[in-house]
Design a protein around this nucleic acid. Structure first.
Length: 861
DNA sequence: GCAAGGTC
């Protein structure tokens, strides 16, 4: 019997590597599965003594990502503090890839599942995402273990085969630690980000960011930049002095180095100066030494090293470099670009990789030379067991790669450099004394350029000096005292920042570039010349603000502590729940403290940014207070009412003007015209745009021009809502007759009038004598009136629940109709005049009739 | 609209 085995890798390229390594004779067929991204490779082989049909496929990273349920994603209605205790849901990380479906279909009929995900915590976590989708659809494996985990430390065929022979089980603890980290990151990141964003955007009109974000990785990343900027600002320059001696030999002037380097005392420097300046002073050579020195060939490239080099040598930002490297990887030019390993695995085919370059127009001959002379043994480094260092796979020209060629060129030259010899050079040092003070002149001559022949930036220039002999006297050409000042350090470069992040464990090889990009995008730092990161006033205010409130919010320790706690979970020394709860409780406290002390941060913002009021320009009238709303034209574009203390989100693109001074029929706000250069121009109501009426939440942010169906459905502004604390407007649903319904456009309270009976209602200019509310005019159909006769006009007060007959066209004279409020209770009709009620009980001239009030009468529902 | 982590 042939059993089926499903094997799953972390990404498509590894599935292919697996099939190549494990299928007998490299014979396998490939097809597309339910996911457009992940192929399925199939072959027949042996699985622990059974004949088996193998299906090798992959994920594309995580199947799921964590988020809040939709109801928690409304920034206006959810208090950020509640996020700490909010539930979370797992969503498909990329629904287009249809990964769950992919595993469900491939799992059918399989008895065994072998998980080949990357051997790190994230990989372990993805194992369980796969298990959740696959196992319920698999066939029984009898008494055998059904789910297996391959543990491999390299992707070399030998290692993969070894892993296949020694399968283990997935580690739930490691997986749990990832869930723990994800939940904490989500909750505290979102809580702080939402609070800060709303707080500062509600106060300032010229914040130059859409989002005032906080995160356990991005915030410490910013902290590094601000700390350096603080150091620069606090820097006090100090004077120091040098003795600059120029000697001459063979017609050449040579600048000598003073053995003391520099002194910080002016009198001392002058003293030496006086001694040396003596007319009789002589420079006598006391030593000439020559030493062979070498510059070591570089280490193999891992991600961080590549990003640093791309930044310093190519001027490419980490994010940009990462994208290029990914492209080159996907197109088969490079090995996987996300790796921490900077040493080649033992069985890495270095020869093959060099041979692949031997036909290249720029470095083909160099590669051939390397091959014929023999490759140098690469330097040792760290093997993290994830992926080999970043290495070119096949040769490519500028024509093939376009823009990305620069990066490819850098990586390939670097690769060739790692298997080239060291750069050897001869250092010559001539020591001489002038009245007992030591000086020297140095020269350098390259003996063997080694790797610098291919890695241009490593190139060294010769410094040739004439020959000197011990004991000889040299001519002193000039002596002077140099006065200098110590200089502050520079702003951090991208490369410096990457090093710091790596050192402090902020982010991963795959995410560091994103964190740096984030702080740029949020306008916390600006990229300056030499790819240096200068914090903006916003970035500085934020970091200094955190420091004043709670320094632990911003220092790298924040991340380190979380990681430490997650490690406890991964090592099985702690349970997920208590760890997550502990950390969240801690951060909840920090959050509360931050919120209560945010004024400290705000003090810093105050000096930098303009208040909403100062930044806005008056545009249109508020529907509630009839004063002018102001618009803040910079993003996020918003309007605000100073009097009502309310902010209205507005469309982010387009010029805003007043629209014919027309008012929104629903809420009386003056309409605003949004003029777009591209696309449509349209009028909107600030209120309806920000908070769509009648619960049309899903339409938030959409255009609410006057053609919107909701404006046709409702006859507006019947009167103000009668609910407590509601400023809404009661609007008549024009489609609802004859069972007329009146809805509040804000609190959504629904009222209805005279089920089945009323013909038409509208607002009048009369008010109720008792409560002062606007009275509605209610017109009944002839014959359908609860009253015996004809067509009546009445006015109704929604607040007092009363209806007044004001006029009748019947012959029965003046009627008065009153109703006792309450569902199911009787209403009474008292006809005054000469009417004749069917069941009239009153005497002459007075008629009484009772009728059961239908449910859904004239009271709140 | 938010975090950080995978990868496409």
């Amino acid at each position: 019997m042939v059993v089926s085995v499903l094997m799953v890798a972390e990404k498509p390229s590894i599935a292919q590597t697996l099939a190549d390594a494990l299928s007998p004779g490299h014979k396998y067929s490939s097809r597309t599965g339910a996911s457009p991204a992940c192929k399925v490779h199939e072959y027949e082989g042996d699985f622990y003594g059974q004949r088996a049909w193998f299906k090798v496929t992959s994920c594309a990273g995580h199947v799921y990502s964590i988020d809040f349920p939709p109801e928690y994603n409304n920034w206006d209605r959810v208090e950020p503090l509640t996020l700490f205790g909010a539930p979370t849901v797992k969503q498909e990380a990329n629904p287009k890839l249809r990964m769950p479906k992919h595993f469900q279909t491939e799992a059918k009929g399989c008895s065994y599942l072998v998980l080949w995900l990357d051997c790190d915590r994230e990989g372990e976590n993805i194992c369980f995402e796969v298990i959740d989708n696959a196992v319920p659809y698999m066939s029984s494996a009898g008494s055998q273990q059904q789910v297996w985990r391959a543990q491999f430390s390299s992707l070399a065929p030998v290692d993969l085969k070894k892993a296949m022979a020694t399968l283990g089980s997935p580690n739930k603890d490691m997986s749990d630690s990832v869930d723990a980290r994800a939940e904490m990151d989500l909750k505290l990141g979102c809580a702080f980000t939402r609070f800060q964003t709303k707080y500062f955007q509600g106060k300032y009109g010229d914040l130059d960011t859409n989002l005032v974000s906080y995160g356990p990785c991005q915030t410490p990343t910013l902290w590094f930049c601000v700390r350096r900027s603080d150091e620069i600002n606090a820097f006090q320059p100090e004077s120091f002095y040098t003795i600059d001696v120029t000697v001459a030999k063979a017609g050449r002037d040579l600048q000598a180095q003073w053995d003391r380097g520099q002194v910080f005392d002016m009198p001392i420097a002058s003293l030496f100066m006086n001694i040396i300046q003596d007319d009789n002073a002589k420079a006598v050579v006391n030593d000439v030494s020559q030493k062979e020195d070498r510059q070591a060939r570089p280490q193999a490239l891992n991600t961080v090293a590549m990003l640093k080099m791309a930044s310093t040598r190519l001027g490419l930002g980490p994010q940009q470099a990462m994208h290029m490297a990914e492209r080159l990887y996907l197109d088969g030019y490079l090995t996987y670009p996300r790796t921490e390993t900077n040493t080649y695995p033992k069985n890495f085919d270095l020869q093959g990789a060099v041979r692949a370059q031997s036909g290249h127009p720029a470095w083909g001959s160099y590669s051939q030379q390397l091959l014929s002379n023999g490759l140098a043994r690469p330097r040792e480094g760290v093997d993290m067991g994830d992926h080999p260092p970043i290495t070119p796979v096949r040769a490519a020209t500028e024509g093939q790669l376009g823009d990305a060629y620069r990066l490819y060129d850098m990586i390939t030259r670097h690769f060739l450099a790692t298997v080239s010899g060291d750069c050897k050079f001869l250092r010559t040092r001539v020591n001489f004394t002038i009245v007992g003070e030591g000086f020297s002149v140095s020269g350098r001559k390259v003996i063997d350029p080694g790797f610098t022949a291919i890695q241009r930036s490593g190139e060294m220039e010769d410094v040739i000096i004439p020959d000197f002999k011990k004991g000889e006297t040299i001519e002193i050409k000039r002596v002077s005292m140099g006065s200098h000042k110590t200089r502050p350090p520079s702003y951090l470069s991208e490369s410096d920042l990457l090093s710091l992040m790596e050192k402090h464990g902020i982010g991963t090889d795959a995410s560091m570039a994103t964190h740096i990009n984030n702080i740029c995008e949020r306008n916390y730092v600006k990229l300056a010349e030499g790819r240096r990161l200068i914090p903006t006033q916003l970035g500085i205010a934020l970091v200094h603000g955190y420091q004043m409130v709670d320094n632990e919010l911003v220092i790298p320790k924040v991340r380190a502590n979380m990681e430490k706690n997650c490690t406890l979970v991964a090592d099985g020394k702690a349970e997920v729940l208590p760890v997550v709860q502990h950390c969240l409780r801690l951060f909840r406290e920090k959050f509360i403290y931050y919120v209560t002390n945010v004024e400290l941060v705000d003090q810093l913002f105050e000096t930098i940014f303009k208040s909403l009021e100062a930044a806005g320009r008056p545009l249109s009238r508020c529907g509630d207070c009839q004063r002018y709303l102001s618009v803040v034209d910079r993003k996020p574009v918003r309007m605000f009412c100073k009097t009502c203390n309310r902010i209205f989100k507005m469309p982010q693109n387009g010029q805003m003007k007043l629209y014919k001074e027309l008012k929104c029929p629903l809420d009386n706000f003056e309409l605003v015209f949004v003029a777009n250069k591209v696309g449509k121009s349209y009028p909107i109501c600030p209120m309806c745009y920000d908070d769509p009426p009648f619960g049309a939440r899903e339409e938030q942010g959409k255009h609410w021009n006057l053609d919107h169906p909701i404006y046709k459905k409702y006859r507006p502004a019947v009167m103000s809502c009668i609910a407590d604390n509601c400023s809404g407007t009661l609007c008549l649903d024009v489609d609802s007759g004859p069972k007329w319904q009146i809805d509040c456009n804000v609190c959504l309270q629904q009222l209805s009038i005279f089920e089945d009976k009323a013909h038409k209602i509208k607002a009048t200019s009369d008010t109720c004598e008792e409560c002062g509310s606007v009275l509605l005019e209610v017109i009944f159909n002839k014959g359908k009136s609860p009253l015996p006769d004809g067509e009546l006009e009445r006015k109704a007060c929604l607040v007092c629940d009363e209806i007044f007959n004001t006029h009748t066209v019947s012959k029965t004279g003046k009627n008065f109709f009153r109703r006792n409020p309450g569902k199911g209770k009787d209403i009474q009709c008292i006809c005054q005049g000469k009417g004749k009620g069917k069941k009239g009980k009153g005497g002459k001239g007075k008629m009484r009739r009772t009728q059961r009030v239908p449910l859904g009468g004239l009271w709140r529902v």
